[in-house]
Amino acid sequence: MEHPFIDVRLLASNLALTRTYLRFASLTLCIYTVLYGVTEWIGTARGMSSMESGLMLLPMSALSAVVVGPISKRNLILGPLMVSALASIVASIGVLFLTASTPMIWILTITFIFGITMGTMVSGNQIALYTQVTADQIGTASGLFRTFGYIGSIASSALIGIVFHQKVSDEGMHHIALIMIAISIIALVMTLTDRRLRESAKAARANA
């Protein structure tokens, strides 16, 4: 096809860009698992309404919005991507210890840390993308960026559906946490071992 829905040739020819997509999809999975899974668990374990559960995530979204600005203005890549993976690991470990009797402040703290992951992950990967493609590829590359984000969110829904298939429980939440920890560690390793990402970071700083 002349204009395929997913440009496989672009993915195969630009592996640095492909790794950016994979990092974005993997941490998006963790973020949406918090948005969907943790709120569902809160509602069941703590007997809270959907509105009350949703309000618990407001600090996460607010912090994410605050974090994006400084990173984008300075064209930062490597640092934010390392922080996003590390914050996801720390917060996922926190999820591992959630129980029905966990104080609300602990749950808020965990979601707050995921707000750091969200802000640094989105901005860092977007800036990396801009340095990894030519001007005529920006449109296609940006579209694929959003597509991989959707893949991450869909995968999170599948994960939650499988784990919580019979019932929403502390044990199920802990299983999800283990999966998020593993995914976050993979994202961190991908960031630390990506030499092209370091080149992208230098290029972005030069254009700042």
Rank of each mutant, 00 (worst) to 15 (best):
A45F: 03
A155S: 14
G124A: 02
L178N: 07
S142T: 15
P80M: 08
I185D: 10
S92A: 11
K73P: 00
F164D: 01
I71A: 02
S156E: 04
N75I: 01
L55H: 08
Q137D: 11
G54A: 00
T140D: 09
N75T: 01
H165M: 09
I186F: 14
I162F: 07
T120I: 01
L76W: 10
A62W: 04
F164N: 00
L55K: 01
I77T: 04
A45Q: 06
I151E: 03
I179R: 03
A91V: 02
I183Q: 10
G161M: 01
N207E: 13
L57G: 01
A85G: 11
L11I: 14
Y130C: 05
R198G: 13
E40K: 08
N14W: 09
Y36C: 04
I181E: 04
I138V: 15
I31A: 14
T134C: 07
I31R: 06
A187Y: 04
K167W: 00
I31F: 15
W41K: 02
S88P: 07
T33M: 13
M48L: 12
I138C: 05
T109Y: 06
L108A: 15
V67M: 03
A12G: 08
C30M: 11
S61R: 10
I181N: 09
I31W: 13
G161E: 00
P59S: 04
L10S: 10
E199L: 12
I77G: 05
F5T: 07
L22C: 05
L159F: 03
L178S: 03
L57K: 00
R46H: 09
P80Q: 08
S84E: 07
V133Q: 12
F24Y: 14
I138A: 13
T117G: 07
P4E: 08
F145T: 02
A85Y: 11
G161R: 04
S142R: 04
E2M: 06
L188T: 05
R19G: 01
L192E: 01
S123L: 03
A100G: 14
M1D: 13
I154S: 13
I116G: 05
L57H: 02
I151L: 15
V83S: 09
T20Q: 04
A201C: 05
I162M: 06
T120S: 11
G172F: 03
A203Y: 02
A155P: 05
L63H: 11
T33V: 14
E40S: 12
M51T: 10
V189W: 06
G172W: 01
H3I: 12
G139M: 09
S157M: 10
H165F: 09
Y130S: 15
S84Y: 05
S184R: 09
G172Y: 03
G69F: 08
A128Q: 05
S84L: 05
L144I: 06
I110T: 08
M1V: 11
I181V: 15
C30I: 14
A87V: 04
G69H: 07
G124E: 06
G79F: 13
I183E: 10
T134K: 14
I179Q: 10
M190F: 13
N207K: 12
S200E: 02
L178R: 07
N14H: 11
